[in-house]
């Protein structure tokens, strides 16, 4: 939420610069620039590794994420026992739980981001394309929503949806679409003046067809960047909610839940904090670098430096 205006600035600045270069060539040169950005590329590789291990890792280790090892409660990391990350207070293998937690955290972020993208793009594109007083009214509503103390509403939603974590993150996504809608509306306003839209209109296509077939596909750049910047924010929100005790249900876990649990025992069972926190920090940093890399890659002004 607080990062909102920051993101908006970044994304809007990026896309006001060089529309005249046209969609395709912009994409290609951006890909090339991204490829040359060492930090972003390294982050992308780390990110892919993390995602792959979250997907396949749990199948490769001998311990389940919910089964206790009655012989090893609170045992520190050790090669001999096979608990490379140690075990928790229920004798459960921390490596298995970390892998599983990463998976849940990523899934949750994905759900929330998809929801925010779908709502934001539709809302922004419709407002921008139709324009006039409808646009005014729709954007006024967005302004109003901005004034709500967002995190308080998330907590209230949590109190009600307490049980279903995916429903909740869909709800967070539904609160996170505001900035997306603003950006998309701005882009739409400029795209709709272009010739190919005029042409589409001349052939008698319906308004909805023009919006979803011709305008939305041209919004990919800003949408991707914004989505990349939203994911770490959702993951951070998830860990915040876990700390407040609104995390996912046992025996499932998430990075946030693991860290919130580990933070209380950092002096006595440090491994319970160290490993999941390491993964979370790595994940967030690489997501941020990838997001920054994307932004820089699309930003023509950046070349002038």
């Amino acid at each position: 939420m607080s990062i909102r205006s920051l993101k908006e600035n970044i994304v809007e600045d990026t896309f006001t610069a060089d529309k005249e270069t046209g969609g395709r060539s912009l994409m290609q040169s951006a890909a090339l620039r991204f490829y040359r950005n060492k930090a972003a590329m390294l982050s992308l590789i780390i990110l892919c590794l993390l995602i792959l291990s979250a997907i396949f890792g749990p199948y490769l280790i001998p311990f389940g994420y919910e089964d206790p090892d009655w012989a090893a409660f609170r045992s520190p990391p050790s090669w001999d026992s096979g608990h490379y990350f140690g075990t928790d207070q229920n004798g459960r293998d921390l490596l298995a739980r970390t892998l599983y937690g990463t998976r849940i955290s990523l899934l949750v972020a994905l759900v929330a981001t998809v929801v925010s993208v779908v709502i934001g793009v539709s809302y922004g594109a419709v407002a921008g394309y139709i324009g006039g007083s409808i646009d005014q009214a729709m954007m006024r509503f967005v302004d109003i929503m901005y004034a709500l103390p967002y995190i308080l509403f998330v907590i209230l939603l949590m109190v009600i949806f307490g049980r279903n974590v995916f429903l909740l993150f869909a709800a967070i996504g539904a609160l996170e679409w505001l900035t997306m809608a603003r950006i998309v509306r701005g882009q739409t306003l400029s795209i709709k003046e272009r010739e190919f839209i005029e042409a589409a209109r001349a052939t008698g296509l319906s308004t909805s067809a023009i919006i979803f077939k011709h305008i939305v596909p041209n919004l990919t750049g800003p949408v991707v960047i914004y989505a990349a910047l939203t994911i770490p924010e959702i993951i951070a929100t998830e860990s915040f909610l876990s700390y407040l005790g609104f995390g996912v249900q046992e025996p499932l876990t998430s990075l946030g839940t693991l860290i919130a649990d580990g933070a209380g025992v950092m002096e006595v069972l440090p491994w319970l904090l160290f490993f999941p926190a390491g993964v979370l920090v790595t994940l967030l940093i690489s997501l941020l670098f990838v997001g920054d890399g994307l932004r820089d890659a699309f930003d023509a002004k950046e070349l002038k430096r």
Binding site: A236, S239, G256, M266
Partner: peptide, 18 residues
Amino acid sequence: VLMGLVVPGFLVAPILQL
């Protein structure tokens, strides 16, 4: 500065207390 952004506050706080 980036660490300040990615490490959650509920983790920084007990570390600083300690």
